[in-house]
Amino acid sequence: MTEPVIICRCEDITLADIQERIEQGNHSLEELKRECRCGMGPCQGRTCMPLIAQELAKSLSKPTGEVILPSFRPPTAPISLGALARGSSHD
């Protein structure tokens, strides 16, 4: 038996999960992310999105460069509500 391969560490999603969802017809990163939360944890997909893009490219037999990346949303790094609130009181 082989160990399950974790592809998204923040949300604990395996390679097999992703492959199954691609097979079910989720053919874009936006759809995959909304199906299983891959790339939505604290790292915001920095580690897993390129790997999942590769998987998608492989399954769809197209170059990885043609897989459209999902929207990258602010903030760039996690920041606490407390720090943000202090920021606004200095205005």
Binding site: P78, I79, L81, G82, L84
Partner: peptide, 8 residues
């Protein structure tokens, strides 16, 4: 205040 915002 202690919680980190990860996405907006």
């Amino acid at each position: 205040a202690n919680l980190n915002v990860i996405r907006q």
